[in-house]
Design a protein around this nucleic acid. Sequence first.
DNA 1: CCCTAATTTAATAGCACTATTAAATTAATC
DNA 2: GATTAATTTAATAGTGCTATTAAATTAGGG
Lengths: 210, 210
Amino acid sequence: MSEHNKTMEETIFENAERLFFEKGFALTSTVEIAQASGCNQALVHYYFRTKENLFNTIFEKKFKQFFQYTFDLYTQTEFTFAEKLENLIRSHFNLIVKMPRLPYLIISEFTRAPERLKALREKLGDSLGQMFLALEKELQAEVEAGRVRPISAFDLLISIVSLNITLFVLLPIGTQLLDLDEQKVQQLLEHRREEHVSFVLNSILIQKAP
Amino acid sequence: MSEHNKTMEETIFENAERLFFEKGFALTSTVEIAQASGCNQALVHYYFRTKENLFNTIFEKKFKQFFQYTFDLYTQTEFTFAEKLENLIRSHFNLIVKMPRLPYLIISEFTRAPERLKALREKLGDSLGQMFLALEKELQAEVEAGRVRPISAFDLLISIVSLNITLFVLLPIGTQLLDLDEQKVQQLLEHRREEHVSFVLNSILIQKAP
DNA sequence: CCCTAATTTAATAGCACTATTAAATTAATC
DNA sequence: GATTAATTTAATAGTGCTATTAAATTAGGG
């Protein structure tokens, strides 16, 4: 239990968050947000002025959160490269499990209004760049040691991200298409998580001849 | 040159196609389609009755086209498994190059209205299933021969599709974020196409000890 | 209890859009 | 050239939405 009862502003914010994530910007109206929060629609505008404003606040919060986590994933150091990579893939996957609609939202909202990207790039700061450089350095050391096939950190990350996000972007469609129940979905996710790990490690690690 | 000048119905259809692919269903209005076609907005409704109708006609056409092509990709037989796989990945990639906005449209429109899936599943017929079975059979033969690590056709296809489509879904965002010009985009695509081939083949083929 | 500020509501202006209708125009046929 | 059908337009009903304004209500501090 939190100290105080939720203020209406918080309630609105949370309902907006939920609805935007469920249905995206265009299909969520301020009327609906108000109804879900048990207040008048004008109140939504009183607190957040515009729908765009409200959405951006929510979106930026989640976006930053996501990339901050992603950054944190790569700061442990007591592992081998292969282990760290394995961790990275699993953690990134697990992170998306917690925010399964974020990839779709990022895609659809930046496709709708690409100009917002530049603003976010600044707000993100260097964290992503730092992580990238750290990975690149270690990766190239492994390549030179002959333990990893030649590949750039850029390519490696794109591939990992592609595998992870597409699964969640296509999951609603796949669930519908294949008539999957909750349990089947769970199984599929666990299976694919390990498949992503295998897929990437098998692809870049050079097997020693026995 | 075609035999006759385009009828207004065709003009409307083509402009609608272009606009829907550029901006998706929600952000394209029948007014805009009419303006682009040089006619009154009522005419769009005269020929196609509703916007939904027009969109579905266009979408189903492209969707079928895409999967028909995909199916055709896997009917050649005079190659080794590795070569066929290589072909499949490259051709699938090249196909998306020709319809780069289709993946995004499939994702966004089925996310918007998932019930349409069932209808399309029937219209697609067996072609996809056939291709799937053919691949599965060959794949498992390779696995048993020890030339390929154990993996299902399902997993393999998901991974290939993930790599290929995410690239195009994220490309508009990436282009904006990294300030890529047309030439850089071209280079990136060619590079990634080959990277996808390497990534998949390295991942599933078992290297012989020298 | 009164005053003031914060919160909430009711009402509505105004926009963009889809879809329909009836009328006008063009083309086709006889 | 008159008649009919096909095409196109003008006008508009009707919907659902965002945002604003002014008024009403609630809560807190003196």
